[in-house]
Design a protein around this nucleic acid. Structure first.
Length: 824
RNA sequence: GCGAGAGUGGCGAAAUUGGCAGACGCACCAGACUUAGGAUCUGGCACCCUAGGGUAUAGGGGUUCAAGUCCCCUCUCUCGCACCA
């Protein structure tokens, strides 16, 4: 190897060695502690972007660090390969989604390999492989048997551009998460997973995940949206029917003066009186037509219509007019709300607009509210009034008391309501996992029998772009016979949401080639849970909630014994350039290929790790990349410069060390300690790299006054630099390590330990403050006695002027740090 | 509106337990060398001021011998939820 740093040569060499030796292939090994490190697998969109480079660089540092520490590290990679873009590309290029996808995978795999990432490529999988999705069909059918997968007619989110259904989690601000089109509402017969059955456990377990960022947990808790309250029945006047409401405020029941129903409420039309019928129909029509986006906005004017019907307040027996209101949501609670205008702001505004009665049932402590003069609802805590036997109670106590009373009287019952809805997984698209059922006119929905699995996605679909699901037009796929009655039947043409595949891929990585089922239980037990998961914050509710749900389902189906899939989660920040997220439209994209071509993968990795801590956004700077490259070149030169002198250096003779050499050795061991802690405890790679840079500076400074008898110290210093850099810039470090005369690789050499004794300072700096202001610094022995330190501080000549004419009130001593003299 | 997080030099950032604010790097300035380079090395680099100081971590107040760090108020930004009964 030459003395000039040539990343291309170095990187090609080591990538070949790693590939030839299968260096990162792992098998279960009971003798070592396991570490399962996973980055969210990419969608094969065509080529990798800087976000990938950052994500996978972060992961690779941890993988290599843990490996050097002696862990048996599982570090797999694969492809989230089903999805819309492949289908769109097929239409555009008159090709096939499979071709596009597998070509992209091949190209992107090559790109990842040029980054020198330490994956066990033997475990690679793509979710569009038959060998993957066939097992998912088996899981689906088992979920179907348990009622966890079901089909029903329901209102769904429909993306007109993607021509498919979206789950609630996939609608952002009323728009499609992928293409940003405005989402419409449609009534469709579609498949769902009963994630709501796991709502409570999914919520509870967020409190068992200390290794997750709090904000992700909070987002999941909000999404699950548990609220405790009551269901209460209100009899409709002059009829047998009842309206059921959900409320978290049973304490306000005596103040309920009218009723609000969602426009889509099933009773809406039948309640309408003859005279109101026209108005009610017009209102329902208007609400249905108003788009979801606007309807959700809080500043939307509250509107409603009187149905002409009344119900009875079960506690006061007062007649309550029944309204339809645009702010009541059918999906939440029972789609009906008891309106308490005095204690709910929405009801207050509604009552004012339609001139409905107000009745105060809670007063603020020591005050009396007058409905005639109220300008807003009173929603905080207070004392019960106008509520019969509950008068005088704190309203917080009355919640419980009234709820108990309602239960006793059979009027209502305590319930828990969740905001979480079941996960709609039907997608009216071709490039996905076919839902393995058959629709028979006689037998209804019939699951595909185990012997007929898998349902293979047919390759002869046509991608015309003319709308509709291409799969539904493949006659040979659609037409089949009913497994139950044998009659002619039609195969289901909906495919599964691609988030289904990403909900269990981390489990499949434990036994990616297993043919006995989706998962090899022993292997899963050996590797799971994922010790460290790394990915973008954008999946805080989507993928990360689905994956938790799926893990629990697979546990309950007997496939594994894991409750939570990801022990620790790191959400890395975005890559920003010129103040905006990198995107084609902004023209601020940095192409990883060009970067690697010019500087090498190690520089690209180093910069993306050095510029910011992983969880923060990273501000890309071309000049910063130059700086990282310069640093590596400097280390390279340093090694070759000292190589002839240190080649035959022996071990450091610690007893004989003194002066600068001893200081250098102290710096070496302090750096090892700091880098180990920064990487291990905090993932603060930026400060770890900064510490190595400082050490390099120290070695260079030392070298300028190099004394030949200190070659052993220099060798130790240089070798430590190389070893500490190994997780960050692996090709670079391996090359220098071998140049330094080592036959074993850095992985085999392991992570350096430090000599605690060598880190002990001979002298320390004690800061002297007067009234908290820095006035002097003392250089003293580390074990200086308190009195000696104080005396030295008081006697210091820089301190003296500040003491003149004043009296010393107090002297504070913080051992080894400072003396603060308080004067007045 | 509610919830979470953030605000530190020209820039990216450090400061781990309340104890020297600005490590490390970028940019910039000066110098050295020169086969003139997007090279390397040396030094400087928060602000104000002549030394000695003084002032600075969004703004204001507080606790403390001591506050970027803890408490209260205000402002700004980012993210999430958003009429959830």
């Amino acid at each position: 190897m030459e003395e000039r740093y040539n990343p291309k040569v170095v990187e090609d060499k080591w990538q070949k060695i790693w590939a030839d030796n299968n260096s990162y292939q792992v098998t279960e090994d009971a003798s070592r502690k396991k570490y399962y490190l996973l980055e969210m697998f990419p969608y094969p969109s065509g080529k990798i972007h800087m976000g990938h480079v950052r994500n996978y660089s972060i992961g690779d540092v941890i993988a290599r660090f843990k490996r050097m520490q002696g862990y048996n590290v599982l570090h797999p990679m694969g492809w989230d390969a089903f999805g819309m873009p492949a289908e769109n590309a097929a239409i555009q290029h008159k090709s096939h989604p499979a071709k596009w996808t597998y070509e992209n995978i091949a190209y992107m795999r090559g790109q990842l390999k040029t980054l020198g990432l330490s994956y066990d490529w033997d475990r690679e999988l793509a979710t569009c492989d038959l060998d993957y999705y066939k097992w998912e069909q088996k899981i689906f059918l088992e979920m179907y048997e348990k009622g966890l997968a079901y089909k029903k007619m329901s209102p769904v989110n429909w993306c007109p551009k993607c021509e498919t259904v979206l789950a609630n989690e996939q609608v952002e601000d009323g728009c499609c998460w992928r293409c940003d089109s405005t989402v419409e509402q449609k009534e469709l017969n579609q498949w769902s997973f009963a994630i709501t059955r796991y709502a409570q456990e999914l919520l509870d377990d967020t409190y068992q995940l200390p290794g997750w960022p709090e904000r992700v947990l909070v987002m999941q808790r909000n999404w699950i949206g548990r609220s405790v309250g009551c269901e209460i029945d209100f009899p409709v006047e002059g009829g047998m029917s009842k309206i059921k409401v959900f409320t978290t405020r049973p304490d306000t029941l005596f103040g309920a003066t009218f009723m609000s129903l969602a426009a889509e409420h099933p009773m809406a039309l039948q309640l309408a009186s003859a005279s109101q019928r026209e108005a009610v129909e017009a209102f329902i029509d208007k609400v249905k037509r108003s788009d979801r986006l606007k309807r959700g906005a809080e500043d939307q004017e509250k509107e409603g219509v009187f149905t002409g019907a009344y119900c009875i307040n079960p506690l006061t027996n007062v007649k309550m007019p029944i309204f339809l209101a645009n702010f009541v949501l059918l999906e939440y609670g029972t789609g009906a709300v008891m309106a308490v205008p005095t204690h709910d702001q929405r009801d207050f505004e509604f009552a004012k607009k339609y001139d409905l009665p107000l009745k105060v049932v809670i007063n603020p402590e020591g005050e009396t509210l007058d409905p005639a003069t109220m300008t807003e609802a009173f929603t905080t805590e207070g004392v019960m009034v106008n509520s019969g036997r509950f008068d005088g109670m704190a309203n917080t106590d009355a919640k419980e008391a009234i709820a108990d009373f309602l239960e006793k009287e059979g009027i209502g019952k305590k319930t828990v309501n969740f905001r979480l809805r079941d996960w709609g997984i039907s997608r009216q698209r071709y490039w996905g996992n076919p839902i393995p059922v058959i629709n028979c006119d006689i037998c209804g929905v019939v699951p595909v029998p185990a012997k007929d699995l898998p349902v293979v996605l047919p390759m002869d679909a046509a991608f015309t772009g003319e709308g509709g699901n291409p799969l539904a037009k493949v006659e040979s796929f659609v037409n089949c016979s009913c497994p139950q009655c044998g009659g002619a039947a039609r195969r289901e043409t909906d495919t599964m949401d691609t988030f289904v595949q990403s909900s269990w891929y981390f489990l499949r990585y434990c036994s990616p080639k297993f043919q006995g089922g989706p998962l090899d239980r022993d292997k899963v037990e050996a590797w799971m849970p994922v010790d460290q998961y790394i990915g973008g914050i954008e999946h805080a509710v989507l993928h990360l909630l689905y994956a938790r749900f799926f893990t629990k389902v697979l546990r309950d189906l007997g496939y594994c014994n894991v409750d939570e899939p990801f022990k620790n989660l790191l959400t890395q920040g975005m890559v920003i350039k010129d103040g905006a997220k990198m995107s084609k439209s902004k023209g601020n994209v940095v192409d990883p290929n060009a970067l690697i071509e010019r500087y090498g993968a190690d520089t690209a990795r180093l910069f993306s790790l050095f510029a910011a801590p992983p969880e923060k956004d990273l501000d890309w700077s071309d000049q910063g990349v130059d700086g990282s490259y310069r640093f590596l070149s400097r280390v390279w030169r340093l090694v070759f410069e000292v190589l002839p002198a240190i080649k035959n250096a022996g071990a450091v003779d610690t007893a004989a060390l003194s002066g600068e050499a001893k200081n250098l050795r102290r710096a070496v061991h302090k750096t090892i300690k700091k880098v180990s802690e920064d990487v291990e405890d905090r993932f603060h790679f930026n400060t770890a790299i900064a510490a190595v840079m400082e050490l390099v500076n120290a070695i260079q400074a030392f070298n300028q006054k190099a004394a030949p008898e200190n070659v052993a110290v220099v060798r130790e210093a240089v070798e430590s630099v190389v070893r500490l850099l190994a997780p960050f810039v692996p090709h670079f470090a391996e090359e220098l390590w071998s140049e330094l005369g080592h036959a074993e690789t850095l992985d085999q050499a392991g992570w350096p330990g430090y000599d605690a004794e060598a880190t002990v300072d001979e002298e320390i700096t004690v800061v002297v403050q007067v009234n908290g202001k820095l006035r002097s610094k003392l250089t003293v022995a580390p074990d200086i006695a308190e009195e000696a330190a104080k005396a030295a501080a008081l006697a210091d000549e820089k301190v003296q002027p500040f003491l003149e004419g004043k009296s010393v009130k107090k002297v504070v001593y913080v051992p080894g740090r400072l003396v603060n003299i308080v004067v007045a």
